[in-house]
Amino acid sequence: MRSYAHPETLVTTDWVSQHKSDPNVRVVEVDVDTKAYEEGHIPGAVGWNWQTELCDTVRRDVISKTNLEKLLGSSGITNNTTIILYGDNNNWFAAWALWQLKMYGHSDVRIMNGGRKKWLAEGRELTKDSPKYGEATYTVTGFNERYRAFLRQVEKAMNDRTFVLVDVRSNDEFTGKILAPPGLPETCQRGGHIPGAKNIPWAQACNDDGTFKSADDLDALYTSKGVTPDKNVVAYCRIGERSSHTWYVLNYLLGYPTVSNYDGSWTEWGNLVGAEIER
């Protein structure tokens, strides 16, 4: 049985239970539903809001270097802190935070396998108290651009056989039957997918309890659709968050050498005048 390529990026709920108070460990909850943290969270965990704290709130972009330094500093995180991310819905937005932290070069950031769902289901300790940590100094020292894909790169990748595009949205979004998941705003003008993209919905990487599938199962899932490690893989979804989950799986659990996340995703491509679309 194969093991994960980078098991050091994943911790169990048990590990978090034992290490959540370690001074060099900071647990951070990042939820799709930003109200979940207030219901109760892991003692000592800080909560980050993906809508206001993990993006540029003026122009469409990831968090700026300056704002990331402020966010980490105010969370008591230094460059040497081990950051443990967890969240609701199979760690959907925990992966979004991890993608950004890895782009900004934080060396030790991990995901709690199973996320919030598993912690609750196991009846583990919760609190409503927000922790107060002393201000720390955090300095971003670089930016890994290779983890991110922009429109021009995707346009080139579409016609380059060394690349494979992975559309991780639902099949109904992929085929253009719907423009957005039920209950969410339709933020594109056209439905469908980027020509040539393979459809592997992101949540297929998870078990029912929210944990990641085994390396063997993940390998079978992606290689069966032609998403293989010899290719340059570009993952995308609607706004780049579901695809950051797939980016994590391919990069760290399967160890694919070249994986990037196209965070412009369908809300960019599906609004472009004249862009090629397949259904």
Binding site: V32, D33, A36, E39, N89, N90, P181, P201, W202, A203
Partner: peptide, 22 residues
């Protein structure tokens, strides 16, 4: 589930898991 003396309910679509009610 129950936390303290309150019950909580969370409804999300199965795919992709977007919250519709809490």
């Amino acid at each position: 589930y129950k936390i303290g003396d309150r019950y909580y309910c969370h409804v999300a679509n199965v795919d992709p898991g977007a919250t519709l009610a809490r």
